[in-house]
């Protein structure tokens, strides 16, 4: 009980989740507002389809609400949330592998020259810069998508604020050393694929 109280005190999100457990929808809304973008980032880059990722992100939060009664703040809320997100994402990837024709928006090798999705550009830059950045961004997204699931998830979670190696290990269900190794190997693969861009200094001024 002491551990539960301490965890809820040290993690404000866990405290919010305890309120959700009591049926406080406003607390749930606060959690959705805070985590919708990080969850969407993970799902969109794992599935490669923003529309599908959006639906799944919605399911993740509905699942969080449904599971609120079972929630025990023994770990950080974000760890629990991303574990749910990853499990649902893996289910979706498995479903896709069983029914490949279902995902009509998935990219096909023949369509590689077409943009995967529309991304709002908040910055102001020249058309050539925008094109270059767009191309590079797509290449990075593609390189990330081609990583094995565990390596990609580890790197994406690592990129999110406040996720430590230990928490990522909990989400992935691996040991601490295995998690570090996953991130290291993922980064090595990315460096190989993006080598020309790492040396050219492109994007330095963004």
């Amino acid at each position: 009980m002491i551990g539960v109280v301490m965890s809820a005190n040290s993690d404000p999100d866990a405290a919010l989740m305890l309120r959700v457990k009591q049926g406080d929808v406003a607390a749930f809304e606060e959690l959705v507002e805070k985590y919708q973008q990080p969850v969407m980032n993970l799902l969109s880059r794992s599935l490669g389809d923003p529309a599908e990722a959006e639906d799944l992100a919605q399911n993740v939060f509905v699942q969080v609400f449904k599971s609120a009664r079972r929630y025990r703040p023994t770990a950080k809320f974000s760890t629990w949330l991303f574990t749910i997100a990853r499990n649902l994402c893996l289910n979706e990837l498995r479903r896709r592998s069983r029914h490949p024709a279902d995902s009509l928006d998935a990219t096909f090798p023949d369509n590689e020259d077409q943009p995967q999705r529309q991304v709002q550009d908040s910055g102001v830059c020249l058309p050539t810069d925008a094109l270059m950045h767009g191309e590079l961004e797509r290449l990075i997204e593609q390189s990330l998508a081609e990583l094995p699931e565990t390596q990609r998830t580890a790197i994406l979670l690592f990129r999110e604020e406040e996720m430590s190696y230990e928490e990522i290990a909990q989400v992935l269900g691996t040991s601490l050393s295995a998690t570090k190794s996953l991130i290291h190997r993922g980064r090595e693969t990315l460096k190989l694929k993006l080598k020309p861009y790492l040396q050219s200094g492109i994007w330095h001024n963004r």
């Binding site: 969407m40 980032n41 923003p50 990722a53 709002q120 550009d121 961004e137 990075i140 997204e141 861009y197």
Partner: peptide
């Protein structure tokens, strides 16, 4: 590069 990826 990874840091500057835009959010979906």
């Amino acid at each position: 590069l990874l840091r500057q990826l835009r959010d979906p």
